[in-house]
Design a binder for these strands. Sequence first.
DNA 1: TAATTATATTTGCAGTGTTAATAATTTTAG
DNA 2: CTAAAATTATTAACACTGCAAATATAATTA
Lengths: 196, 196
Amino acid sequence: MKNKEIQEKRIKNYFVEATREILKGEGLQAVSVRNVADRAGYSYATLYNYFKDINELIFVCVSDFQEECKIFVAGKSSKKTKGTERLKASVLAYIHYFVEYPGIFDLFYLAKPTGAGINSAALHLIAKSLDDVCEEDWNYCIRENLIPAENIENLKSQLRFSVTGMLLFYMNRRYPETHDEFLLQVKKQMDTIIKN
Amino acid sequence: MKNKEIQEKRIKNYFVEATREILKGEGLQAVSVRNVADRAGYSYATLYNYFKDINELIFVCVSDFQEECKIFVAGKSSKKTKGTERLKASVLAYIHYFVEYPGIFDLFYLAKPTGAGINSAALHLIAKSLDDVCEEDWNYCIRENLIPAENIENLKSQLRFSVTGMLLFYMNRRYPETHDEFLLQVKKQMDTIIKN
DNA sequence: TAATTATATTTGCAGTGTTAATAATTTTAG
DNA sequence: CTAAAATTATTAACACTGCAAATATAATTA
């Protein structure tokens, strides 16, 4: 009965791949049962044989994008000198990722996790998304005593809420109005939270 | 031709009132053209004689709620001693308002301003929402030299993004899981940003 | 009172998510 | 290798959504 499992997993993945493509390309609002099934090469009702509802399917994509984001960030901050400088570069790259793919921002922070497939694992992944992406940077700062260990958790929280708040305002409320202003604001906030 | 205007304004207000009621009660997801028109006592197509689309109608409610929020906050923080203490109480009351009315949080921070009625005035109002609610508190702190004047704008930004970020995580991502944990986190963040 | 204008409603269309009944396929049993 | 059983995919249908054009009603003006 192992074949059944890997076959099911394969078909599930066709739907997930289709969803990911739509999310990255046209955005969250373009993800619909019919649209996804079309791209996956199945009838729309077939989707319900593999996922409880469209919401479950959408949130299944979170872990893939988180992984992709991690690689994206690592590629952008690897050249920087380790320490608070690279930490800031990682945060900046994290922000860059979501500005580049607004559909993924919508998925991570705006989409409502309703219906049968609440997928609390995905919600947890999102809550720890920035921490996860910056994990190595934080660890280095602790090892090298660049930041007092007892401050780390508080700093992580500050960064998490501040970054998410700025992204929310910029992506969803057109504030600030220009991308340059936005980046300036991000750097200012980062410098306020992460001294040196 | 003044009668025409006040009549039109009256009917517009019937739709706005209905929308506000639904937003506060059942939430943003319950606001639909049919639902609003039903409650307003009109056919749903009539709505389009007074508003470009449902999105415009929704964002028209922002100023009313902002006003209501201001009164809500003032009532909760008026007893506190002026200064940073009352400032923190105001921020806490602001958060309390949106936790009490999730539909209004959805409107302020989650709803997509798409379609014909982008209503950039409403977006600006939202961006300055917390600053507006805390205006008196900030002014008092400046007058009494409780906070260096050159820090004010940066502190406002920090508070704005941090508070919105925390609200977003708590309301939309179930993080933290309990209300007590959430309040503890809010207080911690506030104390970090506003010293004394 | 009749014609004109303004307002409201009905009808219709193209979407959405989801489910039940049906069709096609694959697997199992004889 | 064929017949029955189980699995999987599809069509049809329902109740929604936002929105627009055509139609009906009401109010205003001539």
